[in-house]
Amino acid sequence: MSLQDVDRSILANGGSDGVKAEEYLQRAGARLRHWLSRYGLLAAFLVFWQAASSGGWINSAVFPPIDAILSSMWRGVFGGALLDDIAISLQRSGLAFVAAVLVAIPLGLFMGQVRPIEQALDPILQLFRQTSALALYPVFILLLGLGEASKVFVIFWATLFPLLLNTISGVKEVDSKLIEMARVYGASRPTVFRRVVLPGAIPSIFVGLRLSATTALLLLIASEMIGANKGVGFQVMNAQYNFQIPLMFAAIFILAGLGLIANYALVFAQRRLCRWSDVSI
């Protein structure tokens, strides 16, 4: 009897327990591989940062180690100092985002269906869209003062266009053959809108929502860097002035986190609303 034969007989006698354990290991292995392929590079980047900073390969005054940033974030959030900043920042970008949604979606749904209005307004929309909101910020400050209003308005302005244009194109790109099908069954215009146009435009509206959410956070930081004394964006600048570099990175990480959360929340909502299509993150 050779060794191989022994192995085989053990395997054969091992019964279902052996098979189950093997299957379990295989599944765990597959899950690990999946996790590594998705997050491996990110983890390696953070580990490299930590090692490079604490090992002195890079200037740790500019790139403090990850653990110092995390402890600074912990102190800031649970000590309450950063919490106020997060709250005011969320309020600014949230207000602007909600206002943009309330204006852009109904307006876009309307414009997408009425060709002459869309054609008349398109050039001016393109012009506004291509004009950087940041370039207009001084104008808004002149008009609305240096307070909350101008900050919220500049964010609103920048978030409005991606959402509006995506809503319009979503409505325009609804398959005209589906609309014709509904007409054959005698559907009225409101019915066609409710049952064909609106659901057909939703994926594109969500593209707009995700773009707008990202833009809202981007503009939030820019507006808070000018003439603010609170907010996460302010904290990034302020911590840098005071040379609290770990705090600065803590604020930057929080911003990145807010962006990720907003995106995931929208993806989640889209998956709930659009079970019929595949939604990628």
């Binding site: 005698g186 939703i202 299509s277």
Partner: peptide
């Protein structure tokens, strides 16, 4: 009623909802 070359189903509705569509609209 018309049957087109393409099925022209509403992708966001289930098969049953699609079949009921015409009658509901009417």
């Amino acid at each position: 009623a018309v049957i087109f070359q393409e099925p022209r189903l509403l992708p966001w509705q289930t098969v049953l909802e699609n079949v009921a569509f015409g009658l509901e609209v009417r």
